[in-house]
Design a protein around this nucleic acid. Structure first.
Length: 583
DNA sequence: GAATGGACTTAGTACCATAGGT
DNA sequence: ACCTATGGTACTAAGTCCATTC
């Protein structure tokens, strides 16, 4: 009786917690309609990068073959370069030029007058010193490593959490970005520039008036303390490379992020209800008398069919030259009236977000093809394909078609609906768990391919594939042996009327067969995944309730699909979705 | 309607702890 | 018990989209 009671209390607590989580979510919506994000916010402020520690005097810098003692400021920047010496980009002209220019700004006038050529700088002693340090760190004793771990944990406990409206929440990034050399992605015009050290005087603190305000380091001041409850960030500062603002915000597991995430998928589900209408509409618009409407309609077709990003304009020379749908240029597509037996093929070849290449050959409808020919008439390769269109025009149009609709909703919608369809198509309740998981990963993969989520093939890919193959071969041999053994055991059983060893061996055969299967599945999965990153779509595009429902239907433990962090992020969905959930 | 600033989501990669094999 | 491939995570860059200002 006592035990039962205790059990009820525990369950009761769990239920209360869940209910409160959700009633809280719903209530909020009613409570704050005017953009208010919280009523109470308290935190400890950011953790700054550790101060620069000058090099020991035996680690020398040489200019033009001669030893030269650098001022601390100049030395610090020099170490940034030294740490990157093994990277290919320190050989790039732009990187070196940007670095040298910014480095000179940190030098004393004396240093500046002496050091005039980067090629004459010798950083190798510094570089070797840091390599040795990294080595030393790796080979530290268990106790030392434990100490570091404990210290990290202490920092996390002290600075890694905040209180927002009665909830203790995890902070995503409580450490200020340390100084260093900027390395953008792709061909970035600012690579190599000095990312300066952030001081308390650069920091804006956001918290509620009635909270215990974070305290700046001794003798220092914050730039500002404000109490803006219309935003979700706790700390901000302006970064010096692009002049943009950086923020400290909450972890994806937090209420405020979870709610927003949920909202995102609800918007995508609303699109599901009216996507047919919208598709009919843009097909009609391909015939419009107005060029701007035709362009809008063709762009939307690409966004819908190919899950392209919106493509905002970018300031030339400030960032790498990348494009999205609305910013496509004539040079990014090729038209083939006929290609490999298909009619009206468009070949896309451009660099998208993060300078990831998008390459695709797709047959399109005749009207789209004719329109594209029209848009390209009398244009140079570097002219805009959609010269009468930009993201603002497109999104205004989308807003009229559905409340809250923007270009990126199509990516979310198409990703999620693809997962749902693929899961239906690929999985079979009868199969065993590894086979089901392979199917899940394949469905996930279909989405990643749609969204063009790529990764550099792991450096150890070939080797690890080989290792796996060796294992598979070994397992095959083992299976063959076991089968032979089973045969003789069967014969034995007949003669001696002893079923025991036969049963035992047959169990072993079964076990080995399963192991072999698992390995083979693993090999297939890995091979197919060579250049594809599943994480991004899983984290940002797939309605988690689809996966949760699928797990329930297929009898798969959720842990097989989502790791701990992911389960925390998707806690709302794990609680919410039933077996019959439909996106 | 163009430019700018601001807030927030989405993105790939480097690094590190650790699981799982020897 | 030791070693190493792998998964998980931290990091921070690079997008989207909206509001504001001129």
């Amino acid at each position: 009786m006592k035990k039962l009671k205790l059990y009820c209390v525990i369950i009761g607590n769990a239920l209360n917690r869940r209910q409160s989580l959700f009633s809280f979510m719903f209530k909020r919506k009613e409570r704050y309609t005017d953009g208010v994000k919280w009523k109470f916010l308290e935190h400890k402020g950011p953790v700054f990068a550790p101060p620069y520690e000058p090099l020991p005097s035996n680690v020398k810098f040489y200019y033009d073959g001669k030893h030269m003692k650098l001022s601390p400021q100049a030395e610090e920047v020099a170490t940034f370069f030294a740490k990157m010496l093994d990277h290919e980009y320190t050989t790039k002209d732009i990187f070196r030029k940007n670095f040298f220019k910014d480095w000179k700004k940190e030098m004393t006038s004396e240093e500046r007058s002496k050091i005039t050529d980067l090629k004459k700088c010798n950083f190798t002693e510094m570089s070797d010193y840091f390599k040795a340090q990294a080595e030393a760190r790796k080979s530290k004793t268990k106790e030392d490593k434990l100490k570091i771990k404990e210290e990290n944990e202490r920092m996390l406990q002290e600075y890694g959490f905040c209180v927002m409206d009665n909830h203790k929440e995890r902070i995503a990034n409580f450490r200020i970005e340390p100084p260093g050399l900027f390395r953008g992605r792709g061909d970035h015009p600012k690579m190599g520039m000095l990312k300066r050290r952030i001081r308390p005087e650069d920091i804006i603190i956001n918290c509620s008036k009635d909270s215990k305000h974070p305290v700046p380091p001794p003798g220092r001041k914050w730039k500002e303390v404000r109490h803006d409850n219309k935003v979700t960030w706790l700390v901000s500062w302006t970064e010096n490379i692009q002049g943009s603002i950086k923020y400290i915000m909450l972890n994806p597991s937090s209420r405020i992020k979870g709610e927003k995430d949920w909202q995102k998928y609800e918007t995508a589900r609303r699109l599901k209800k009216c996507v047919d209408r919208i598709r009919n509409q843009y097909r009609e618009d391909w015939k419009s008398k107005e060029m701007r409407i035709r362009q809008r309609a063709v762009a939307l077709y690409f966004i819908d069919k190919l899950a392209l990003r919106a493509g905002n304009e970018k300031e030339e020379g400030e960032t790498a030259d990348t494009v999205g749908c609305c910013s496509l240029r004539v040079e990014h597509i090729k038209l083939y009236p006929e290609n490999d037996g298909q009619e009206f093929v468009v070949e896309f070849d451009f660099l998208g977000k993060d300078s990831i290449r998008y390459y695709n050959k797709v047959p399109v409808e005749k009207r789209v093809f004719k329109n594209l020919q029209l848009f390209m008439e009398n244009k140079e390769p570097d002219d805009d394909l959609f010269d009468r269109l930009n993201t603002s025009i497109l999104n205004k149009h989308l807003q009229e078609l559905m409340d809250g609709l923007t270009a990126k909703v199509f990516r979310t919608y198409n990703a999620s609906i693809t997962l749902q369809q693929q899961l239906k198509e690929l999985t079979n309740v009868e199969e065993n768990i590894p086979a089901k998981i392979l199917s899940y990963n394949r469905a996930n993969r279909a989405v990643a391919i749609l969204c063009n989520h790529q990764r550099a093939p792991p450096k150890t890919f070939e080797k690890s594939m080989q290792n796996l193959q060796t294992k598979i071969d070994a397992k095959r041999d083992q299976l063959a042996d076991a089968k032979r053994e089973l045969k003789s055991a069967k014969a034995d059983a007949k003669v001696r009327r002893d079923e025991k060893s036969k049963k035992y061996v047959s169990k072993a055969v079964q076990r080995i067969e399963e192991q072999l299967m698992k390995l083979e599945v693993q090999a297939t999965d890995r091979e197919e995944n060579k250049q594809i990153a599943l994480g991004t779509s899983k984290l940002n595009y797939l309605d988690p309730r689809i996966s949760v429902a699928w797990c329930k239907k297929m009898g798969i433990p959720i842990e097989k699909i989502y790791n701990k962090t992911q389960r925390e992020k998707f806690a709302w969905a794990i609680d919410m979705a039933e077996e019959d959930y439909e996106f």
